[in-house]
Simulated scan of single mutants.
Amino acid sequence: MIVLSANTVSALGGHDILRAIDDVRRTTALFAAGDAGMDAENSVPLAPEAGPHARAYALPAWVGGDYQAAGVKWTAHRQIRPTEEGASVSMTLVNDRRSGALLGAVESDGLTHARTAAVSGVAVGAFRPAGVRHALVIGGGANAHAHVDMASVALPGLQTLAVWSRDPAQAQTLRATHADDPRLHVATSLDDAIGAADTVFCCTSSVEPFIMQRHVRPGLTFVQAGHHEVEFDAITQFDHITGDRWGSFAERSGKSLFRLYRAGGFPRACLDADLTDAVSNAWQAPPQDSLYFSSFGLNIFDIALAARVLKDAIAGGAF
Results as ranks from 00 to 15, higher is better:
Leu59Asn: 10
Arg133Gln: 11
Gln284Ile: 10
Pro129Val: 06
Leu174Ile: 14
Ala114Asn: 08
Ile235Asn: 08
Ala144Pro: 08
Val223His: 01
Leu12Pro: 00
Ala154Thr: 03
Cys270Phe: 03
Ser5Met: 04
Met91Arg: 04
Phe258Asn: 13
Val124Pro: 05
Val230His: 13
Leu102Val: 10
Arg78Cys: 12
Pro48Phe: 12
Ala282Trp: 03
Thr177Ala: 07
Thr75Leu: 13
Leu103Gly: 08
Asp289Asn: 09
Thr27Gly: 14
Ala61Gln: 10
Gly65Val: 06
Ala306Trp: 13
Arg19Met: 04
Glu107Tyr: 02
Val119Trp: 00
Gln284Asp: 02
Ala304Thr: 09
Arg98Met: 15
Val186Cys: 13
Val119Pro: 15
Pro52Val: 00
Leu190Arg: 15
Ala11Arg: 09
Leu257His: 01
Leu310Ile: 08
Ser189Gln: 01
Gln224Trp: 06
Phe258Thr: 14
Ser43Asn: 07
Phe266Gly: 01
Ala58Glu: 06
Gly100Met: 12
Phe31Leu: 12
Thr221Glu: 00
Arg166Gln: 12
Ala162Gln: 15
Ala123His: 10
Ser248Phe: 05
Gly265Trp: 01
Ala87Val: 10
Asp289Phe: 13
Pro168Gly: 03
His113Tyr: 09
Asn42His: 08
Pro60Asn: 10
Ala36Phe: 11
Asp16Cys: 11
Ile235Val: 09
Ala278Gln: 05
Gly34Pro: 13
Thr276Asn: 01
Trp283Lys: 05
Asp191His: 07
Ser165Arg: 05
Ala11Glu: 09
Ser253Cys: 13
His15Leu: 09
Asp192Met: 11
Ser90Ile: 05
Ile314Glu: 15
Gly317His: 07
Gly100Pro: 14
Met1Ile: 12
Ser189His: 07
Leu291Lys: 06
Ala306Arg: 08
Gly34Ser: 00
Cys202Met: 15
Val200Asn: 14
Val44Thr: 14
Gly316Ala: 09
Gly14Thr: 09
Ser43Ile: 02
Pro156Ile: 15
Leu155Ser: 01
Thr236Trp: 09
Leu155Met: 06
Ser88Leu: 09
Tyr67Pro: 05
Ser295Gln: 11
